[in-house]
Design a protein around this nucleic acid. Sequence first.
DNA 1: GATGAATGAGATTTCATTCAT
DNA 2: CATGAATGAAATCTCATTCAT
Lengths: 197, 197, 197, 197
Amino acid sequence: MPEAIMIDMRKRIVEAAIAVAAQSGFTQATTREIAREADCSEGIIYHYFMSKHELFLEVIKENAEDFLGQLKMEVNEGRTAKDRLERIIDFHFHYFTGKIHIFQILFGKSGDAMVPFPYVLKTIILPYQRYIEHIITQGIHSEEFHQVNANIIASSLLGMMQFNIIKLHFGVKDSTVDEIKDTVKYLLFRSLIKVKP
Amino acid sequence: MPEAIMIDMRKRIVEAAIAVAAQSGFTQATTREIAREADCSEGIIYHYFMSKHELFLEVIKENAEDFLGQLKMEVNEGRTAKDRLERIIDFHFHYFTGKIHIFQILFGKSGDAMVPFPYVLKTIILPYQRYIEHIITQGIHSEEFHQVNANIIASSLLGMMQFNIIKLHFGVKDSTVDEIKDTVKYLLFRSLIKVKP
Amino acid sequence: MPEAIMIDMRKRIVEAAIAVAAQSGFTQATTREIAREADCSEGIIYHYFMSKHELFLEVIKENAEDFLGQLKMEVNEGRTAKDRLERIIDFHFHYFTGKIHIFQILFGKSGDAMVPFPYVLKTIILPYQRYIEHIITQGIHSEEFHQVNANIIASSLLGMMQFNIIKLHFGVKDSTVDEIKDTVKYLLFRSLIKVKP
Amino acid sequence: MPEAIMIDMRKRIVEAAIAVAAQSGFTQATTREIAREADCSEGIIYHYFMSKHELFLEVIKENAEDFLGQLKMEVNEGRTAKDRLERIIDFHFHYFTGKIHIFQILFGKSGDAMVPFPYVLKTIILPYQRYIEHIITQGIHSEEFHQVNANIIASSLLGMMQFNIIKLHFGVKDSTVDEIKDTVKYLLFRSLIKVKP
DNA sequence: GATGAATGAGATTTCATTCAT
DNA sequence: CATGAATGAAATCTCATTCAT
């Protein structure tokens, strides 16, 4: 293991927690397993975090911030609403097909006693959805898009992307990532974009 | 206790298992809690099932069969592909906004050591998706629908519905069920249906 | 082990808890040790008690009731206040030189995070002291005793008895139990009893 | 931090150990808590003491010496045996109602795996008792006192004082310190002092 | 068939002690 | 001297599973 990785034990624990939790959920992720993954003792986890519970809340929070931060930077480059939505879709698939761990933890569970879904919903999913909703609303105001229920469209977009990615992660190779992205964009924009006469 | 309730202990255990697991997943559902919910002893569970693991596999399987059975009965009444898809959407929202338990177990989790997601995927989700895909393909062949990637559209439809229902279940009341159904149908049919000249 | 002892596991756990706690306090009494002493698994302790803490509160309460019940039965036989106090002293030494366990737990500790002294004080010590105080007050009213501060005399009697018993328990054999009892009675009655002219 | 506080780290650790142990015993006193109280690192404790165990043995020993030293200085001023015993009682209440910490550690516990009661008994309690006993014996020889069992009387005096102080420490305010002292002296001297004809 | 007491493996958490800096 | 990150053993508690009744 390179020395750079050795140094920050806290970071190593967080990474290990993500990796382990991704496999079968927070509750199933044991401190023993996390310690093995981080190559440290179980005890040291409690030097950095007050409890396993707090560790996972921290994991969620840090990754949510990381994800949304990167997303917004990427999207701000886009000029039109359509352009921005495309960037969201591209970034979402890029991020979550690369990092299986975080994805599964943030989106995949609807109930876990250790890190309850409402917390994940509040911390990452709803802010994400509201961000998409906001862009759609802008598109409507600029008359780029039809008058639609931006909130439900945003939720539906998240649902589409998530579900297709889950399938990919579990090895269902019906289609390539590019085919999926194209079809999702097609579905979305057919409903949104005004056809010029 | 009326005798009718006494007789089918097995069924009572299955129902109790669903109810308990719905709250925070299979792993968190204890046999003690299931026994309390079913108003029986913990020991008797092992008379009907070899293990807690096997119990939950059964729960999944039986509910998958129940759901798909009801769905197909409902859908067969539809004449056109569009009509059938509408019936699927109506039934899906009806079923999962009524029965929170099963929904959460079948769709809500991407990983649980006790009943692994691949099993859920194989047993219920993919058959469901393939059924939808088949209807879309029929619509394409009958020239009712555009030439689209039926597989990805089907997956996306499932994702949309699931995500919006999860929000409802966790108390995010941005929209009514009817508004959601309408918007989902709008999204879907804008992409599918050929506009008549 | 005779079968009679095998039967009541709850009782065995309570007895074992007393025996183990007597050696080095509640906090030091581990469930592992209690289980070994009771010849059972650690798990079963939690079938009968919600926690180690609750187990010890129960131990205190049950023994306090047992002790005070026996004491009062014994004392009620006495006619005069002096007679009753003598019976208390006799019973106290009989009880606590026989049952080392309970004594140490009820009187010996002034602070233990597991079963805080205030609880022991409230549950057993103060009721005991007030009972003695009451008898002294009766002796004063019947003009058998001098006008004294019955409360402090009662506390002092408890202190004398306790301290001498502690010494005995830890093997300091300066005197016999009978010598101690006689001297304690002498100290007490010299201060209480009116000398007849 | 002023240099004066910096210099005697050892003393600071000892004081902190007393303060922390007073709250719920030696075993419950953690090195982490002691370090926080002494405003130093946990590690440095092991520079001055071989182990937590040894630290507490030192605490006991040093405080015992301090207490007995002060006591004897005070008592030597007394001329008669009665005068000396009064000084002991006054000093005892003065010392232990002022310094709750040490009192609880030295007298309050009958068993703690970390610093076993026998050690406390040997180091402080029995020397103290023998000192009282010696004064009573002197009183007997000088015909100031009756022929009594000086050993048991001494133990009983310690028991009386201790028990009343424990009550005070735990907030049972039945009487004032002065009332208690008076009653204890009354009890003691009624039994000891020869009434002059 | 049915019960629930009992087991034992394993989970989280605590803490005295060590050691590189 | 001094620090505090790190360790590892042990403590409390949980829970699927078994088995005598």
